[in-house]
């Protein structure tokens, strides 16, 4: 691999924001093929607690495939995904399905690009936020409602809209609601697939601001997939650039964006429209 030298350069400069030295998520040689074509190939990285890792690349570069494999929505063909569970590091691929699904609704969260994929459109905002609570056994209506109201406040949705359905919400509100619904059980790892896609710039800015606040406040580890370099510049500590299913460059966000080494990254950075 030509870019192997780049990787070793930046590997030394991995930031470790928290005192904890054990990675929350360790990915080793993850590969997913669609028949003869490659979805993503030989992806390896560590994600530390409290760290935000951005994954950028053009459409079809394997970003979403990678995220789906990590989140357990798709089964990878090879590699290991080791998550630091309460009982110690476990390979999620070797977990039983009930265990993996329990993880997905407690320690993990998944924010879809399209809020409609992540919300129940026929259920009120409060019900959407409360669903994860009820899924882990909350059976006290007043408590669930109090928590839901609190979370709507934290994502800047007026509490009196708690009984409205998401279909009555604007796109930005739907996305914020989806985030509240995912974070309500206090996950440790959040997967985000283009969370700002399809939103206009001012709404995007507000959402990013909110996300940044929540991530810092809750000490979340985040894997964020996007093609928008401005989003990763704002949110991500570290960056991974993908092309054709492979990681071509990774390092600190500012380093990669200000001093791109790989030809493709240079192209990507120079393609950003300037206002």
């Amino acid at each position: 691999m030509m870019e192997g030298s780049d990787l070793s350069i930046f590997a030394k400069k991995k930031p470790q924001p928290m005192a904890s030295t054990a990675p929350l998520l360790r990915v080793e040689g993850l590969t997913k093929r669609y028949g003869a074509r490659i979805g993503c190939a030989d992806v390896s990285f560590d994600l530390y607690p409290g760290e935000v890792l951005g994954i950028v690349g053009e459409s079809g570069s394997g970003k979403s495939t990678l995220l789906s494999c990590l989140a357990g929505h798709m089964a990878p063909d090879a590699g290991r995904v080791i998550f630091d569970t309460a009982e110690g590091p476990r390979d999620t691929r070797e977990m039983s399905e009930p265990e993996r699904r329990r993880l997905a609704r407690t320690d993990w969260a998944y924010v879809h690009q399209n809020a409609r994929d992540g919300l129940r459109m026929g259920v009120s905002a409060g019900g959407n936020v409360g669903e994860r609570l009820m899924a882990v056994g909350a059976r006290h209506y007043a408590d669930i409602r109090t928590t839901a109201t609190d979370w709507l406040g934290r994502v800047e949705i007026a509490p009196e809209r708690i009984d409205d359905r998401p279909s009555a919400f604007s796109g930005g509100m739907q996305q914020r609601l989806q985030i509240a619904r995912n974070l309500v059980t206090g996950p440790r790892l959040v997967f985000m697939d283009e969370p700002t896609g399809g939103l206009d710039v001012s709404v995007q800015a507000r959402l990013l601001d909110l996300l940044r606040g929540l991530v810092r406040e809750m000490g979340l580890s985040v894997l964020i997939v996007t093609h928008d370099l401005a989003v990763v510049r704002l949110l991500a500590d570290r960056l991974m650039v993908m092309k054709g299913g492979r990681v071509v460059e990774q390092g600190l966000t500012d380093q990669v964006l200000d001093d791109p080494q790989h030809a493709y990254t240079q192209l990507l950075v120079s393609s950003v429209l300037q206002v």
């Binding site: 026929g122 259920v123 009120s124 409060g126 019900g127 409360g130 669903e131 009820m134 899924a135 009984d163």
Partner: peptide, 30 residues
């Protein structure tokens, strides 16, 4: 609540019944 039959079967299999309470929650909320 969940139109996909494959998904509801899985929910029965894994005893994931939180969603049933979402329906009751909606009732009380409304």
């Amino acid at each position: 609540l969940e139109p996909r039959e494959t998904e509801t079967r899985k929910m029965h299999e894994l005893e994931e019944y939180g969603l049933m309470h979402v329906k009751l929650y909606e009732d009380i909320a409304r």
